[in-house]
Simulated scan of single mutants.
Amino acid sequence: MRFAADHRHVETARGREFAGLARTLFGNVRLDFGGADEEKSAMLSAMLGACRLTRLEADRHVVFGERAAAAPDDPDAIKLILQTEGSASITQGGLHAPVSINALVIYDPCRPYVLTNSTPVRQLLLQLPRQALPQAAVERLAAPFTAHAEHDGMCRILLSLMESTIYEIGHLDAARRSSVGQTMIDLVRTMIGEGPAGQVVNPLDLLLSRIKDFITRNIDRPDLTVAMIARRMGCSVRYIYRAFEAERLTPAGYIWDLRLQRAATKLREADGHSGEISGIAFALGFSSSAHFSRAFRARYAVSPSQWRKAALS
């Protein structure tokens, strides 16, 4: 089934519908719940441009990817699993790899595999187009590739991005979904050996892009602090500061400068009387009109009211 209105891009299934949607979205799979309770299963899935991100939870079960090549109607995608709860393992190419919490496992579903979920599980699954990866990287996926967040900064960023995106999926427009999907592709390419156009991607650059996007979308929130941003990005406060170092900025400095830019835009559209100017200041997180006036004058060399008058002249 699908959500209505602005959730049309999201697909969901529960219970007995779970296995059917899994075959539709993932292609060459067969699910065996054995004596487990299939009714406990739930899935939510959405397209992110060329990628698909899926959240699923289910009782213990086994997934068989039995065909060595995809059928004509199957999605031609590389898969990535993030385990958030439970215990699982994947066997492919003669190798056995655990699917552990806070680790990513990347594999080629066109090669036969068995994914054993030995306990009830919660997982995030990312599918990205095969052609989005270098051929050499795809060839290396004859066996599963594993990365751990505690050892790999790139993995930690991708893990956080997947979790935050699925949380916000109902509120993202098509352009934002596509942008997030491309960022995920870039991260995966870099993790398995090659960034976009053969370039090495700096994980801090990708993190900074995510931070700036998050700040832009939440600039009106009075609780927009570095600590809150770090929680949403899934990293430490120190890592947030490191992301801004290359631009010789602090996170707080970036936030306040963006708020002043937003205020300048709003003032051009305002009547300019003191009440409305104060309203703009408080709406953008300034503690007082005096605080706003001092910061605005330091940034633009004129007062907010003078700025408004100049815009009208």
Rank of each mutant, 00 (worst) to 15 (best):
H151F: 03
P75Q: 09
M162T: 06
R308H: 14
S179Q: 08
A88Q: 02
R52K: 13
K266M: 12
I81N: 09
L172H: 05
R232H: 14
G49T: 08
Q127P: 10
I157H: 05
A197G: 11
D213G: 09
M162F: 00
R52F: 00
R67G: 03
Q261E: 15
G285L: 06
Q306K: 11
M228W: 15
L25M: 00
A50S: 13
Q135H: 14
R67D: 12
P251F: 00
R232F: 11
A142G: 15
T225P: 03
L56A: 10
S100T: 05
A295I: 09
I90P: 00
L206P: 02
F18Y: 13
V180P: 02
L141Q: 02
M184A: 04
P98F: 10
G275W: 07
A143T: 15
N102G: 06
A310E: 13
A70C: 11
Q92C: 11
A147S: 11
S288V: 02
T146D: 05
R238L: 07
E245K: 15
G195P: 04
I240T: 07
G27M: 01
D108G: 12
L141Y: 08
S274I: 13
S303G: 10
F18M: 03
Y254I: 06
L48M: 00
M1I: 06
L207V: 03
V62G: 00
V237N: 14
G35S: 09
I101G: 02
D108L: 06
A310W: 13
I166M: 05
V302A: 13
F145P: 02
A175V: 13
Q199Y: 09
G15Q: 15
K266Q: 12
R67A: 08
I229A: 01
D37R: 06
S313P: 12
R268S: 05
E269W: 10
V138R: 03
A46D: 01
V180N: 06
R60S: 10
D173K: 10
R297D: 07
R294D: 14
A142R: 06
E38P: 10
A136S: 02
